[in-house]
């Protein structure tokens, strides 16, 4: 099992599959309960399609970079699996879409097939595949599912149906990986004793501009 201080998770797939928001979702949920997190995103210039990947590094301590060694890869298609599996550390976990056949010679990694889309459809919210992933992750990194459920409740506040579907997706993902050994058990975080924001660089520039007294943006 990896050390208890941090975990690096990479999501790889195609533009439009929710890959970009997945890392942010994990990081936001983790920081909400006191972990430190930082994301990295790289995507093609097409609005839809094209290889896309994002990464979230979650730690008990402040982090400064996206992290070198991937503990868990979520590969939404075969290209993503082939392209990124060499970045997964020995002993790391790869979650695969059923359409992807893992290389039988790959004995370095624990490959687990998860029917993301099929499980999502069971919730009545086909776009909840991300939440199926998060549910599975909560098992793999031994993070209480309530962290994610609280995040969902806050994110979709006032939309009870959406919250219910996403909670169900989290439970389905967790149940699907219930028999898997966690790859890490992140020690409970020491919640920072100061007020925090979870924002992107662009937004931080905008907030700074408003504080500085900007009057005209063109």
């Amino acid at each position: 099992m990896a050390g208890g201080n941090e975990i690096v998770v990479r999501f790889a797939g195609e533009g439009g599959q929710g890959v970009v928001t997945a890392a942010e979702m994990l990081a936001r949920a983790a920081t909400g309960v006191g972990y430190h997190a930082l994301t990295f995103a790289t995507f093609p210039s097409q609005i839809l399609g094209g290889p896309t990947w994002t990464q979230a590094r979650v730690s008990r301590f402040p982090v400064h970079s996206p992290g070198d060694s991937v503990d868990i890869l979520i590969a939404f298609n075969d290209y993503a699996y082939q392209e990124h599996r060499s970045d997964v550390r020995a002993g790391g976990v790869i979650l695969l879409d059923p359409a992807v056949t893992p290389d039988p010679s790959d004995t370095n990694h624990r490959c687990i097939t998860v029917p993301f889309d099929q499980l999502a459809k069971q919730t009545g919210e086909a776009r909840a595949a991300n939440m199926v992933v998060m549910g599975g992750l909560s098992r793999l990194i031994d993070m209480p599912i309530e962290f994610f459920k609280d995040f969902v409740a806050a994110r979709f506040s006032g939309r009870a149906g959406v919250v219910e579907a996403n909670h169900m997706a989290l439970d389905l993902g967790l149940a699907h990986l219930a028999d898997e050994e966690p790859i890490a058990n992140l020690t409970a975080p020491d919640r920072p004793d100061y007020d925090q924001l979870f924002i992107k660089g662009n937004d931080a520039i905008s907030i700074g501009a408003i504080h500085a007294g900007i009057e005209t943006y063109i």
């Binding site: 994301t39 990295f40 979870f198 992107k200 660089g201 504080h211």
Partner: peptide, 27 residues
Amino acid sequence: MLLSEHSLAERAQNIPRPDLSKVPVEN
């Protein structure tokens, strides 16, 4: 010129809430 870059623009991170009283504004 305020020089940012793609990875920083898209990077989401937890940061201490800035103490605005300690950030002087010049005119």
